[in-house]
Design a binder for these strands. Sequence first.
RNA 1: GCUCCUAUCGUCUAGAGGCCUAGGACGGAGCCCUCUCACGGCUUUAACCCCGGUUCGAAUCCGGGUAGGAGCGCCA
Length: 469
Amino acid sequence: MSVTTRFAPSPTGFLHIGGARTALFSYLYAKRFNGQFLLRIEDTDRERSTQEAVDAIFEGMAWLGLHGDNKAPIYQTQRFDRYKEVIAQMLAAGTAYHCYASKEELDALRAEQMANKQKPRYDGRWRPEAGKLLPTPPAGVNPVVRFRNPTEGEVVLNDLIKGTITFASDELDDLIIARADGTPTYNFCVVVDDMDMGVTHVIRGDDHVNNTPRQINILRALGATPPAYAHVSMILGSDGAKLSKRHGALGVMEYRSMGFLPEALLNYLVRLGWSHGDQELFTREEMIAKFDFDHVSASPARFDMEKAWWVNHQYLKSVDPSVVVPEFQWHLEKIGVDVSQGPSLTAVIEQQRERCRSLVEMAEKSKFFFAELDGYNEKDAAKHFNPAALALLAELRGQLEALPEWTTEALHAAVNGFAEAKGLGLGKIAQPIRVAVCGMAVSPPIDATLFLLGRTRTLARLAAAAGSA
RNA sequence: GCUCCUAUCGUCUAGAGGCCUAGGACGGAGCCCUCUCACGGCUUUAACCCCGGUUCGAAUCCGGGUAGGAGCGCCA
């Protein structure tokens, strides 16, 4: 059986981390079965939907490399004719009916039911029944259209993640499928779209579980076979609270700014709620080959930054440097570094990746390779720039200047030989050099650092430091 | 209030009745390595929400609590 999944965000904000994971699961499941992963924009709420949000979502998806298989995403606002057609069909078939109850009337009904400790629901006052006398439609009122929900039996949902969930039909009231102005509502559009798009697996947040039985009933009323459902639990903040704008509810592009590699974020996300034995790291191919719903947890998971950083570090260390280059360059440029004036980014990445968990950190720690020093770290200078050390730097500078070739090996021999000749541990000389050329006491191995920095910059900075005494 | 969902180390999880004196990973602690910061290696820390039941045997099955969460719109 071919598999078709979809990701259907409503464009009211950026692509957040929970949405990204839902999209990832949908993507992986479709790819696993050589199926289709479709994109749909649920923009029927014209008040809240914006083009900026649509763009932000696409930007996030593109950065993560989660591409839809449809040429152009489907927009619900472009399908109104189709929805009207289906509503007309249902009205004609008697599976939907007009309701003239006013909002005030409905509000009063809800208030009364709440007061009686009942679940608020439509009481069916305009629902046609055999032998029932309907009220006279009030003049000048545009009716809404309601779905005529079956009242007998139960709806059984075999959720791929949560297992079997049963709903009693009489718990379900007659929901509105078209507003008084004729525009269709969410639960209805979803059903028609999924049916028309041939969606076989609906993968979405578990806040939709309670909508599912109604959607199944509409599908049945339309004579369609309901798809399989997988309701993914939500992602919580590290404090266990729901992610809100105030804390943690960041767009995926924020994670880029923080210094994550897209494939690392994906890897962290796929392991949040899903597992494959003890395996922590997966290439995209492995994710596709191994992803399944049997091992997706039904309970919500907290987002743990520490673990996410660990995963990011694993990627930085193991991935081919060429895939890191574009992101690294983006971060360097973001802090105003001109990457044309310095060593190759690949070489810098190879030296720095062991000691950086994020690209922000890597950019900060590599700035000195490309830009002039803006002073020395005060504590480091105070500790390592004593008169004796500065005299050593001046002396070493002379030896380096005379070096016939500027290679890591030659520099290694020169610096180590110098320390040995002076009867000093390497640390005694390497640390002052670091502060002099890097501005701080932390850098890759000293030979590699000097090599990457280059002869001109190294000699100039040693001279500047020695002369600062 | 009603309906629905969830519950193993601090966190993510393995676990589909005996393989569990509960495994892995992140984090924490310690040791080793070491020119700084790191990497790496080793050791260690810490959990089956509670109460009943089924069974020779339960983290695993059932029931009831408790605690979290979601939904109950002419929002999506």
